[in-house]
Design a binder for these strands. Structure first.
Lengths: 233, 233
DNA sequence: ACCTGAACACCGTTCAAGT
DNA sequence: ACCTGAACACCGTTCAAGT
């Protein structure tokens, strides 16, 4: 695994931010699954226990990594155009995950518990949905709908392909190519436009095969649905 | 951890299905994070290496567990009522996860790579969306939209609360209670209906605090949005 | 065919000890 | 205050050996 001669990067000059940044860089470079505190320590040039001076556990370290990836993604709310807000919200989130796709598996989970900027997210969601015409219980539902929309598309689009990419991709290609009209008539009729471009029928994730058009349509569905349900029109 | 006298359950009588079932039972009982092949082996009354006779790796074992949880959730497609299909699809998925909430963190990821019944899911999605009026590229987008809707709400609703439930819940309660109109006007104005009932503002997940009303509204948004975008009306 | 028993190369985390 | 060095109690997985 380690091929470099280990330059022992100058004086460590550690800090909590530096540890989080190094962890994110490590995951970007090598993936989430093989990440370990020990491997991170080695990449920094320090003993494993040194990490624990700045961070209480592996789990909280990764929570900070997620917070770093998502920092600043919530768009400004201008008090007027809720459609522009929703569009920017979903686009910014996707752009953030796209910059660091290896952390995608953590994000669905961590959205629940990240305690940093999240109140600002809820605040702007409510403000925007209130302008859209929602109030009371429906306002809660509109906020939860936005949160579901946030996570639903992007986390699946960038979900990692199985470990043994080689064999799995081959098998998936074959299975898709072997679809027949007898077994799956609708699939067979739409195979060219679906192959490697639809959830369930693809062997690459959003890094190699982004689903830009589907994502744009997804946003339009969410906005049109909210328009239809908003009491004030 | 182990308090029981270890009854050494009769003759093992192992099989692939039995191993998967035992793994699911273990995760249901003790959670996903502390799950290990060794702990599973102990609960079955067998040496760890015995597991590997039936299953190639921990990762594939967990993929089978997910498949077991989701088995049969795709509703029948009657060829007519696409709104009933979408409603049943989302409800069935949520019901399945609700029965085994501890596996929720795996599902967003595994939806991509589970190779079992998934083609049937895509087939019925396409058939239903075709009846809704979509075709060509928009049909792909409609299918991807359904998949995003599937995962978005439920996986967040049942995402596990942090390990140290005690301290985290306390801290979350306090932070929510401390919200002021000066910092978060919209939140402050809607605090009673949002507290512990909205993503980002809750300290219990869907097991203790299900979001039935919001989920119903989410489904209506998705269906209304698809109606609005469908060419044929 | 199916499982044991032992081993290998790892983990996260704690803690006394150094500076 | 910050890091070393060693240790503890685990992991997933492999493999020869038994039956």
């Amino acid at each position: 695994m380690t091929t470099k001669p280990k330059p022992r990067a100058a004086p460590p000059e550690l800090s909590r931010e530096a540890v989080v940044a190094a962890a994110l860089a490590w995951v970007d470079a090598h993936g989430l699954e093989p990440f370990s505190v020990r491997a991170l320590a080695k990449s920094i040039g320090v003993f494993p226990a040194a990490i624990y001076w700045y961070v209480p556990s592996r789990e909280l370290l990764l929570a900070e990594v997620v917070a770093e990836v998502l920092r600043g993604f919530v768009p400004e709310w201008d008090g007027v155009d809720w459609r522009a807000y929703v569009t920017a919200l979903l686009h910014n989130f996707r752009a953030a995950v796209r910059r660091h796709p290896n952390v995608a598996p953590l994000i669905g989970t961590q959205l629940v518990s990240n305690t940093s900027i999240d109140f600002a997210l809820a605040e702007r969601n409510l403000a925007a949905m209130a302008v859209a015409g929602f109030s009371g219980e429906a306002l809660v539902g509109a906020h939860n709908t936005l949160m579901a929309a946030l996570a639903g598309f992007t986390t699946q689009e960038f979900a990692p392909v199985p470990q043994n990419a080689q064999a799995w991709q081959q098998a998936m290609r074959r299975r898709v190519a072997a679809i027949t009209a007898a077994d799956y008539p609708a699939l067979a009729a739409n195979l060219p436009s679906m192959t490697n471009r639809a959830f369930v029928l693809r062997w690459e994730n959003g890094v190699a095969a982004p689903l830009d058009d589907s994502f744009a349509m997804f946003i339009r569905v969410v906005i049109a649905g909210l328009e239809a349900l908003a009491p004030g029109g």
